[in-house]
């Protein structure tokens, strides 16, 4: 029982990342009708926003500390971050430590700008082209974006730790009445899951309860009619694209303490997220979220030692296997509508 709960919890954080990316993909597909292969790159750009902010905050000046010497007997050079000068050593250090949560604020304007630039600069011209062309041009864009990141940040993963307050893990089992140390779960993963839930709820609430969201939903159902009613639906769809980019970017920012970001993390997640979208049903927002968590949890169950002992290698292929089974038995995915992307 403990093991099962632990696996569900373990699946939640990866599932949250899948769900957030798949949600953005579905938003873009539902509104603009574009299959965005560059969505993983947006996730990666978000992660590198956190890295950039961390580096910006730790910008430092070099001073010679006369009181200390290095092993050769020379005076030691010490880097003092500018933040120490401005806020004092303690407050400065804690700001640096909190760079990942702060990066949420930092990344929103960046992701909005990136999203706008992508939609207005490139994707706008591809509405009328076949889906294959859209896939290919965004695939090319993804390569370009990830190579640019690689050029500036190098090929190695860059560690971006969570704030010290959240680095430990807590005993989840005690809460449920199990023995101590049976179900131990890192704080940050719990935060990531809650964060994902808040974002998902926010997006759904935005679509469901605001006038803007109502217009967007109407546009998703019948774009032409909404346009004829005198509403500039293109402008609203562009804003939705920026929001989708933001969702992917925030998912990336918060994911950095779980996995150190590297330049190809976007592509790694993208392939799986597409599988998630297809399993959930192309064009269905609840389907994307559901399938994201479902596949995340299934993956973590499949990597249990007992399961691997029965079916070796299952942890590597479970997601693809599920995708194949779902596509063949329920061709439109779990919650897909009829006639979406059929030809």
């Amino acid at each position: 029982m403990e093991a099962l709960i632990l696996q569900v919890l373990n699946g939640l954080d990866k599932g949250s990342a899948y769900a957030l990316i798949a949600l953005g993909l579905t938003l873009i597909f539902g509104t603009l009708g574009v299959v965005n292969f560059a969505h993983g790159a947006l996730f990666m750009i978000g992660a590198f926003c956190a890295v950039t902010l961390q580096r910006l905050l730790s910008l430092s000046r070099e001073i010679v500390d006369e009181t200390k010497t290095d092993f050769l007997g020379n005076p030691l050079k010490v880097d003092i971050p500018y933040l120490y000068d401005w806020f004092g050593a303690d407050a400065g250090q804690s700001i640096i430590n909190w760079s990942v949560p702060l990066a949420i604020l930092f990344s929103i304007p960046i992701m909005v700008i990136v999203g706008f630039a992508m939609e207005r600069g490139l994707i706008k011209h591809f509405y009328k082209r076949p889906h294959a062309d859209q896939i290919l041009v965004t695939f090319g864009l993804a390569i370009v974006l990830q190579e640019i990141i690689k050029y500036f940040y190098g090929a190695n993963p860059i560690p971006t730790p969570a704030p010290p307050a959240f680095t430990g893990s807590f005993d989840f089992g005690v809460l449920l009445g199990f023995d101590p140390f049976q179900i131990v779960y890192p704080y940050w993963r719990l935060i990531y899951f809650s964060f994902a839930m808040i974002i998902i709820a926010g997006v759904f609430a935005f679509l469901q309860f605001t006038t803007f969201g109502m217009v967007v939903r109407a546009g998703m159902a019948d774009r032409e009619t909404v346009g004829m009613l005198g509403i500039n639906i293109d402008k609203r769809f562009t804003i939705m694209f920026a929001i989708a980019a933001c969702v992917a970017g925030l998912a990336g920012v918060m994911y950095t303490p779980i996995n150190s970001p590297n330049y190809h993390m976007g592509m790694d997640f993208l392939v799986l997220s597409f599988v998630v979208v297809v399993v959930g049903g192309m064009g269905s927002l609840p389907g994307a979220v559901l399938a994201g968590f479902l596949l995340g949890i299934l993956e973590s169950f499949a990597s249990m030692a007992q399961v691997i002992a029965i079916i070796p290698g299952i942890n590597q292929i479970i997601i693809y296997l599920v995708a194949i089974i779902v596509l063949l038995t329920r061709p439109r995915g779990l919650m897909g509508r009829k006639g979406v992307m059929e030809e």
Binding site: V278, M282, I317, Y320, P331, E342
Partner: peptide, 25 residues
Amino acid sequence: SRSGIYFSILTLAFAQMSYALAYSV
């Protein structure tokens, strides 16, 4: 049995599965 993007995803899934299997089991 599927067309469009579903076909792409299915073939991708098969290829990734064979990659993962060749790598491990």
